[in-house]
């Protein structure tokens, strides 16, 4: 069910910053492109620095504007990307199921970065296992991924940006969880509108509407 939305912020209840982290080449940009534009492009340039997309969602009766920050994955960029953590309410840690080292790096490097630079103690974290379309080339099982996520108190979703498996679900689940965390919403009200948290409990589920 799609609903037209004016390209103005006046009807937005919350603006939420989400950060995509993970090694170079795990598919952060592709996940974002799939989510924001529902498309997939084999020919996408490496992200140098940072890129953005804005996506508006309706969750329960709330209109939420997500600003998703897609960062460069290469280790050399860490000192630069650390400045992007400020104010992020949702963190998506991405690995590639065909490259076990990318999951290991989530543990050894990205989690630590997050501890160091994250500014929101209650930020919701999600581990995304991307490229589940690879078939036999898969090297990381669902169990390994979900174990890792559970140990670190993260949500867990397996996705494929290429074949469009669970990408929207992943973002929606993350947003739901953020909306259920009152401390994250204190400064997220767009146009300082009154924030009614009570109405969050009655749910319609999540649906998507026009990307502007």
């Amino acid at each position: 069910m799609a609903v037209e939305l004016q390209a103005t912020d006046s009807v937005i209840d919350f603006t939420i910053k989400i950060l995509l982290l993970g090694d170079s080449g795990v598919g952060k940009t592709s996940l974002l492109t799939r989510f924001a534009h529902d498309s997939f492009d084999e020919k996408v340039a490496s992200t140098i620095g940072v890129d953005f997309a804005v996506k508006k969602l309706s969750v329960y009766d709330k209109r939420v504007k997500l600003t998703v920050w897609d960062t460069a994955g290469q280790e050399k960029f860490r000192t630069l990307t650390s400045t992007f953590y400020r104010g992020a309410k949702g963190i998506i840690l991405v690995y590639d199921v065909s490259r076990p080292d990318t999951l290991r790096h989530l543990e050894e490097q990205w989690m630590r970065e997050l501890e160091l630079y994250g500014t929101e103690a209650d930020a919701v974290r999600m581990v995304v296992a991307n490229k589940v379309d690879v078939g036999d080339a898969r090297r990381v099982s669902w169990h390994e991924g979900s174990d890792f996520a559970r140990r670190h108190g993260c949500l867990f979703v397996e996705t494929s940006a290429k074949t469009n498996i669970a990408v929207a679900n992943a973002f929606e689940e993350l947003v739901l969880k953020i909306l259920e965390t009152p401390s994250l919403l204190e400064d997220a009200g767009a146009h300082s509108g009154t924030v009614r948290l009570d109405s969050l409990q009655s749910g319609y589920g999540v649906y998507d509407y026009c990307y502007c």
Partner: peptide, 17 residues
């Protein structure tokens, strides 16, 4: 909107990006 947000590849790729 700091230059970190848009200018990294201006320098880093000499605008080739």
């Amino acid at each position: 909107v700091e230059p970190e947000l848009y200018g990294t590849h201006w320098f880093n790729t000499a605008f080739a990006y």
